[in-house]
């Protein structure tokens, strides 16, 4: 990488790394160290192809998502993130939004990386299903089924969420679900 490319790379990292790290933390279920690893690996890859990348942010994000799913593939037997303590169950009179979000956060940390990645893309990045499918290299049907199963898994992990209304993705599961691609 020549001096000018290095300068542009540094500017990109300085400007965008905070946002990229936020996404990485969500992908890793709140594990900050793992998120820093994930982001650094993605940036190293980007640095290696810097002169050929047209949209660095899109490239790094794609690497982040796909790396995360790659980890899931490699670590299938230990796909659930261990949590030190079970999520606290809010009492009936304290079940406000903040408590529910804490419950949800703990439940998200216990999803598989792939399930979490799909939810981050759909609900944090606000991407349509077709875009998520393109990023992850799978079909729209797989995105739909994974979303559906991920939300169902969240409910199973946190009974406190039972009173919540169904999401659109839950209400209308796709018929073109492939045979169990993501096991809960």
């Amino acid at each position: 990488m020549d001096a000018e490319s290095q300068k542009r790379f540094r500017e990109f990292v300085e400007g965008r790394s905070a946002a990229l790290l936020r996404t990485a933390v969500l992908l890793t279920g709140g594990d900050r160290h793992a998120a820093e690893d994930l982001l650094q690996n993605a940036l190293v890859k980007a640095a290696g192809r810097w002169s050929r990348i047209e949209d660095p942010e899109a490239y790094v994000r794609q690497v982040l998502y796909r790396q995360q799913i790659g980890r899931w593939r490699l670590k299938w037997p230990r796909r659930e993130v261990a949590v030190a303590e079970p999520p606290e169950r809010p009492g009936a009179d304290t079940a406000g939004g903040a408590d529910l979000r804490m419950v949800m956060r703990a439940a998200l940390a216990r999803l598989t990386p792939r399930q979490r990645t799909v939810l981050v893309l759909r609900y944090f990045e606000d991407l349509p299903e077709a875009d998520v499918a393109g990023i992850l290299g799978c079909t729209v049907g797989t995105v739909r089924s994974t979303t559906h199963r991920s939300l169902a898994r969240l409910r199973a992990l946190a009974p406190e969420l039972a009173d919540l209304g169904p999401a659109a993705a839950e209400a209308a599961p796709s018929r073109d679900i492939p045979p169990v691609e993501v096991r809960p």
Binding site: M104, R105, L108, F124, L161, A167
Partner: peptide, 12 residues
Amino acid sequence: MNVDRLVRETLQ
């Protein structure tokens, strides 16, 4: 509240 809205708010 829907579950997807809670997911969105939690992630944000």
